[in-house]
Each structure stands twice: as structure tokens, then as C-alpha cells.
């Protein structure tokens, strides 16, 4: 097992462990948010292994640095009693959830193996110079995907307006 593989499994274990901790067995909502951060950072590590360095940096910058901090900010604004996690999972819901979850997992694996996506295209070992770094990805973003970037900007603007309206106590 190469060092790369070892890192991948370590990150994968960390991600799954903390994701399960988040929905399953932490006792306080802040701890749940911190487990989410651990998942995000492990995924960023995996992105680096997959030659997507810019995505990894953005992942930490946006998810760990902004989104989860926003969660923590709201959690602290609210005065939460007994951990703030609410009631534990009910048996009926758990059955439904595991049913849906199992279907999704099995469906993914069946579709993947039937369509043979993995065998068609073996991994390219020699990637172009600077693959996945900011320069190449930036050029791709602002040439081939310029329209998508503009649309995402529009979505962000709409969400800013929406968040302000929702959070404001009274619109004068």
C-alpha cells in the first residue's frame, strides 16, 4: 500500500467516522458542527490526493471557514437547552431512512457496475502540468463556463436578498 493510499484511507475513515458522529452519537449541537468540520477537512485532504488543489483550498475556505462558522454563530445566538439536538431518531424514521439509504447505495453501485464507468477509462497517470491548480481552473471557469459563473453569481445575490429579508425582524 503506497503512502497515497494510506492517506486516502485515513482521511476516508476520519470523514465517515465524524459524519456518523454528527448525526448519531454526539451530545451537543456544537460538537455536531465540529464533527462536520472534521469531515470537510478530511474531504479537502482527499481532494488534494485527487489533484484538485484549488477545490481543496476553496473547500476549507468556504465550508470550514464560513459555512460551519455561520452554523456556530446561529447556534450561539439561540439559547439552546439540553444540547439543542432535539429528540433522538424515532424507530419508524430510522427504518425509512435506512431503506432509502440502502436503496441509494445499492443503486449507485449497480448503476456503476452495469454501466461500467470504472473500467472504460483507466486513470491517467501523467496529468498535464499544473492540473487542478488555480491558473488552469480559473481559465476554464472564465472561458468555457463563464455563463455558469454568472448564473451562480445571480443565485448568490438572490440568496443574500432572501437571507436579509428572512432575518430582519421587521421590514420598514
Amino acid at each position: 500500500m503506497s503512502f497515497e493510499m494510506f492517506l486516502f484511507y485515513a482521511f476516508a475513515f476520519l470523514a465517515v467516522f465524524s459524519a456518523v458522529a454528527m448525526i448519531g452519537f454526539v451530545r451537543h449541537i456544537v460538537a455536531a458542527a465540529m464533527s462536520l468540520v472534521v469531515t470537510m477537512v478530511s474531504l479537502a485532504g482527499i481532494y488534494v490526493l485527487m489533484h484538485a488543489e484549488l477545490i481543496a483550498a476553496i473547500q476549507i475556505l468556504v465550508y470550514a471557514g464560513a459555512i460551519v462558522v455561520l452554523f456556530l454563530f446561529v447556534i450561539m445566538l439561540l439559547d439552546l437547552r439540553d444540547g439543542g439536538l432535539g429528540p433522538a431518531a424515532r424507530g419508524q424514521n430510522l427504518v425509512k431512512a435506512v431503506g432509502v439509504g440502502g436503496t441509494v447505495t445499492i443503486g449507485t453501485l449497480v448503476v456503476a457496475s452495469v454501466s461500467g464507468v470504472f473500467s472504460v477509462n483507466p486513470l491517467v497517470e501523467s496529468l498535464p502540468e499544473g492540473f487542478g491548480e488555480h491558473r488552469a481552473l480559473g481559465i476554464a471557469l472564465f472561458t468555457d463556463y463563464a455563463l455558469a459563473v454568472e448564473l451562480v453569481g445571480l443565485v448568490l445575490l438572490a440568496s443574500i436578498v432572501g437571507a436579509v429579508i428572512l432575518a430582519k425582524r421587521k421590514i420598514d
Binding site: 471557514g65 462558522v69 456556530l72 491548480e133 488555480h134
Partner: peptide, 24 residues
Amino acid sequence: IDWGVLYLLVIGSLATYGSVLAGW
């Protein structure tokens, strides 16, 4: 590293956790 400035911003954003968790 090639994205040095981005690294500084990333580190800056992670520094928030120290104060948030300390306060909470």
C-alpha cells in the same frame, strides 16, 4: 506552494475556531 496567498486566507479562516470554541 503555488497558491500561497490562498493558503494565508485559508489559515485566516480557520483561526476563527479558536475564539468561537473558547467562548462557547
